[in-house]
Amino acid sequence: MFNFYAWISHRVNRRWIYPIISAIMAIALIFSSSYPSSAKNPRRLIGPGLEVLQLSTMSDAQEVALGEQINQQILSRQFKRYGNTQINNYVRELGEQLAAQSDRPNLPYTFQVVEDDSINAFATMGGFVYVTTGLLKAVDNEAQLAGVMSHEIGHIVHKHSIRQMREVIIARGLAGAAGVDNNIAVQLGVELALRLPRSRQHEYEADRGALAILMDAGYSPRGLVQFFEKLLDKPSPPTFLSTHPASSDRIAALEQMIPPDRANQGMGLDEAAYRNRIRPLL
């Protein structure tokens, strides 16, 4: 058997042996007894930086759990669920159909209608998508509604809320010695969903993803373009676009992304059929 102490005694002056051994033993003692909780959680030894960066690589289960807490805050303090079962089932079924065509089809999506007259839709991490009653009344057909909902699914697919949360936490210095406090993360998630604008890059990524979802689900890609064209006539931009890239710029970008052979194909453009689906709102 190899004898470490015999080996080192032949190569190092004997007066250095005991200090070296003592230093090794001291380090081992520190990590084994002085910081037992840190040994079980290596992130605490490294500091808050790694904790923040891990927000962009959190598991689906962790993302959904945080999204559920954010959702509870949004529905208890900001919005009220719309009570009509027919409308809720319609939006949920449409959302599930679209989410199945996304790049994250196995996420347990939750599609909810909230009472608000503004033309708006938003999403938070973990698959939570919100559609206002004002938006449902404003769109002309199912393809337009599907386009907006697909856009929000696109944000979830690209984990934009998580990426934005990481950036804000770093910018505001919200990480402590043990990482980000859960309550801070939840409140920041609400703020991100309702008030903080997304970057132009995130919006264009979501638009691109929305087109792919629409076409894969069989809907006309013109639906999303029609929705933006409809908003050009508004004297002031609705909530949905108030902090987003200009509608005209997004229309031009979408037109370029639609394959010419798919421009006039797809379902969902029947206005009468859509009005019949949302009749309780009219």
Rank of each mutant, 00 (worst) to 15 (best):
D117Y: 10
H158F: 09
Q201P: 02
I74V: 10
M215H: 09
F2A: 12
L196N: 13
Q201V: 11
G266D: 05
A217D: 11
Y35D: 00
H244T: 10
G127I: 03
Q226N: 15
A206D: 00
R279I: 09
M165A: 15
V12W: 11
Q201L: 11
E255C: 02
R195W: 02
A217N: 10
A39D: 04
L214F: 03
A206W: 02
L136P: 01
P221R: 12
A185P: 08
L94W: 05
Q226F: 08
I170F: 11
Q73G: 00
L50W: 14
Q187T: 10
L135M: 05
L174S: 10
I8S: 11
V148D: 07
S248N: 14
A121R: 07
L145K: 03
P280A: 03
I251N: 05
N182R: 15
Y219R: 14
L254I: 11
F122W: 01
Y109E: 04
H244C: 08
L55P: 08
S220M: 00
D140C: 01
G209V: 01
L231D: 01
V12P: 04
P238T: 03
Y82M: 06
S32M: 09
R44E: 13
T124V: 06
Q164L: 09
I24R: 01
N183S: 15
A178N: 13
G147W: 04
G154A: 12
T243G: 10
Q187C: 02
D140Y: 06
R198D: 13
I70Q: 00
N41W: 07
M165G: 12
G49E: 06
D216G: 12
K40L: 13
V190I: 05
D207C: 09
F4P: 01
S247H: 05
Q73I: 03
V180M: 08
N84Y: 01
G179H: 03
S118P: 03
P19M: 09
P36E: 12
S9Q: 14
I258K: 00
I74L: 10
Q97M: 14
V131E: 06
R44G: 03
E51P: 07
V168L: 13
R222F: 00
V148Y: 01
S56L: 11
N276P: 02
S37D: 13
H151L: 08
Y109C: 02
R77G: 07
F227D: 04
I30Q: 00
S220A: 08
R43K: 12
M58Q: 13
G189W: 03
P42N: 04
A65T: 02
D116I: 08
F2M: 06
Q62G: 00
M25Q: 10
F4Y: 14
K230R: 15
A206G: 00
L135Y: 09
D270H: 03
Y90M: 11
I119T: 05
R200D: 13
R104L: 14
V139R: 03
I169D: 06
S56Y: 04
R11S: 08
K230E: 12
S56K: 13
S34E: 08
R222G: 14
V129Q: 04
A121C: 05
V168Y: 09
N71K: 07
Y18L: 15
E152W: 05
M257L: 14
F240C: 00
A123F: 05
I74H: 05
L98D: 06
Q72L: 12
Q86L: 06
H155E: 04
L66R: 11
S247Q: 10
P19F: 01
S33A: 10
Q112H: 07
Q73W: 01
